[in-house]
């Protein structure tokens, strides 16, 4: 479903990712783990088109989107939940969700959104900026989901969020995977959360993958070692 080949990403002269290749199967959830500054966000931004891909290809369901603007990538089936959430602070919760509907050309928010995120229903007339961190995270996920993506990109969804809400998010993602035909790429540092949702784990270090595990036979000790400073 998602095929990345020889991806190269740089900020000016400093090349963060060079010659990265990986692919994610349909309905698979791939977790990318790594310590701070290892290039997870850089990879995510390059996939959604906020950063330019210097070289390489990014195929979504067979279509190479590496040269596309962000909005066209969303149109081609990618959706992005950024690290730090980045909801639109002065827009109401409803309007935040509606921005994700632009791609599919709808105005009405379907009921399943509020079924999946009951908090957002209570808060739907509030400004996004006045929600708590955990609520904003759910809003950012809802905003991404309404564009009906084939591939969902989640960048550290658990960052700065209390354990009970992390549990909620994990449960919600697993439910989503049952309901929909969706492929997920998630970057993480929290192993327990990752083990709950991922089918496969890649460990990233210095912009390349250094370790791979299927959830079925994951080597927790080894991954912990990679994540420890």
């Amino acid at each position: 479903m998602l095929d990345v080949k020889n991806l190269q990403v740089a900020y000016g002269e400093s090349e963060i990712i060079s010659q990265l290749s990986f692919s994610v199967a349909r309905k698979e959830t791939l977790a990318i783990m790594g310590r701070n500054g290892m290039g997870k966000t850089t990879l995510m931004k390059a996939l959604i088109g906020i950063l330019k891909c210097r070289q390489g290809s990014v195929q979504v369901d067979g279509l190479d989107v590496a040269k596309f603007d962000s909005f066209k990538r969303v149109d081609s089936g990618l959706a992005y939940v950024p690290q730090g959430r980045q909801i639109f602070p002065t827009l109401s919760v409803e309007d935040n969700i509606r921005t994700g509907l632009v791609t599919v050309g709808k105005r009405k928010i379907d009921d399943w959104v509020y079924t999946l995120f009951p908090v957002l229903k209570e808060m739907r007339r509030r400004r996004g900026g006045n929600l708590s961190g955990g609520q904003q995270q759910q809003l950012a996920i809802a905003r991404a989901l309404v564009s009906e993506p084939k591939v969902l990109l989640l960048d550290e969804p658990t960052e700065g969020i209390q354990p009970s809400i992390i549990q909620d998010i994990a449960r919600m993602l697993n439910e989503l995977k049952k309901l929909r035909d969706i492929t997920i790429v998630v970057s993480e540092q929290v192993l327990s959360f990752t083990l709950e949702i991922a089918d496969r784990i890649l460990v990233m270090e210095g912009g390349r993958f250094v370790h791979e595990d299927l959830r079925a036979n994951v080597d927790e000790a080894k991954i912990h070692q990679y994540l420890a400073v």
Partner: peptide, 18 residues
């Protein structure tokens, strides 16, 4: 809606499909 979203966060507005 597109205008207000773009005003607030241009990169993110693009990344939600605007």
């Amino acid at each position: 809606l597109k205008v207000r979203a773009t005003m607030q966060n241009r990169a993110m507005a693009g990344a939600v499909g605007i």
